[in-house]
Amino acid sequence: MSTFDLPGFDLAKFVRETLAEDLGEGLQGGGRDVTSDSVIPAEARFSGVMDSRNAIVVAGLPLAEAFFRALDPDCTIEVLAHDGDRVGAGTDLMRIAGRARALLTAERSALNIVQHLSGIATLTHAYVTAMRGPGGNPACTLLDTRKTIPGLRFLEKYATRMGGAQNHRMGLWDAAMIKDNHVAVAGNVGEAVRRARDAGVAKIICEVDRLDQIEPALAAGAHHLLLDNMEAGTLAEAVALVAGRVPTEASGGVNLDTIAAKAASGVDYISVGRLTQSAPAADIGLDFKPV
């Protein structure tokens, strides 16, 4: 079986709970696949191929394998691609053979996760390509955000890495990110940063949406500036004012048409929420036949 180890993520628990949800375990009449149990003979066996219908960046194949093996430990699986691979339309990703009922019961969960994660990886790759295109900044790094589906953060952030991005904060615990609402309560940018600094926070990211907020944030001890909703020209001014004292990050108003110009401003990072918030699922199919 393929190995899949993400710190903080319990693969066995994820597979178990996802299948339990689909099977309706604990609900009246639940705990079984009514269709497969009634239509497919218990002794029937299937073989099938999972393939991409469009050009994609692959992510999630080890999870799909885990779903199938959870219900048929003796199934035969040949993984034909690897997470992070860029493949063309019609590429075979995985061959599976085993007990038909078990494979059909696991099919939707396996496909859902590969389609979702591959969609994120594919969109991420498109942003990386646009960012580094003509007029872009090859030194600029694409970041994801915390705009993830609850319960799927580790997997979705894994998928952005497969697409060529770097992870931003994993959660609320690993860095302070001071945003406009924090500033509104604290009174001003400098005071908000000072409070985080005095609390001993090791990494302080501060959002600024005006050029006149840069010096107060830096003077108070910010380690990283998030330049929010600035056009490319304003971003270039901000980068010049920061003058390399801390890393700079552009955020807001970023799409495939604007990312190259924002990268060309000289920022170190660009963060994009839609990588995880609204990436379309990849078109991946799985066709079985009796054996």
Rank of each mutant, 00 (worst) to 15 (best):
E231Q: 14
V242F: 06
A219H: 12
G233L: 06
A219E: 14
A236Q: 10
R210K: 13
R245A: 15
H224N: 03
H224C: 12
A243L: 05
M230Q: 07
N229G: 04
V208I: 14
H224M: 14
L241P: 00
L227T: 06
A243W: 07
G221L: 10
E215C: 00
C206I: 06
V242Q: 12
A219Q: 15
P216N: 15
A236H: 01
A220H: 13
R210N: 06
A220I: 07
G244D: 11
E237V: 01
L225R: 14
E231Y: 03
V208T: 04
E207A: 04
A238W: 09
I204M: 05
V208A: 07
D228S: 08
N229Q: 06
G221R: 06
D212V: 01
T234H: 10
L235Q: 02
R210F: 07
L235R: 08
A220V: 01
G233Q: 13
L227K: 02
L235T: 00
L241D: 13
A236P: 02
G221M: 07
Q213C: 07
C206H: 10
E237P: 01
L226C: 01
I205N: 01
H224W: 15
Q213F: 11
L227E: 11
E237A: 07
A222T: 14
R245S: 13
A240L: 08
A236I: 08
V208E: 03
E207Q: 02
E207F: 12
E231H: 11
R245V: 05
A232M: 03
D212H: 06
I204C: 03
P216D: 02
I204Y: 00
G244V: 10
V239A: 13
D212L: 09
D209L: 02
E207T: 05
E231F: 03
L227Y: 06
A243H: 12
D212T: 02
V242M: 10
G233V: 05
V208P: 14
A240P: 04
A236W: 04
V208F: 13
H223Q: 08
D212N: 12
V239E: 14
E215W: 00
V239R: 02
L218A: 09
V239G: 04
C206L: 07
A238M: 03
C206D: 02
D212Q: 08
A219T: 12
A217C: 10
L241M: 15
L235H: 05
R245C: 13
Q213E: 15
P216G: 13
P216F: 13
I214G: 14
L227M: 11
G221V: 09
H223V: 00
M230I: 05
D228E: 15
L225M: 06
E215V: 14
D228V: 10
A219F: 03
I204S: 10
I205F: 14
A243R: 04
L218C: 11
A238I: 01
L225G: 03
H224P: 00
I214A: 08
A240V: 03
A217S: 07
A240E: 15
H223G: 13
A217H: 09
I204D: 05
G244H: 02
N229K: 04
D209S: 14
E207D: 04
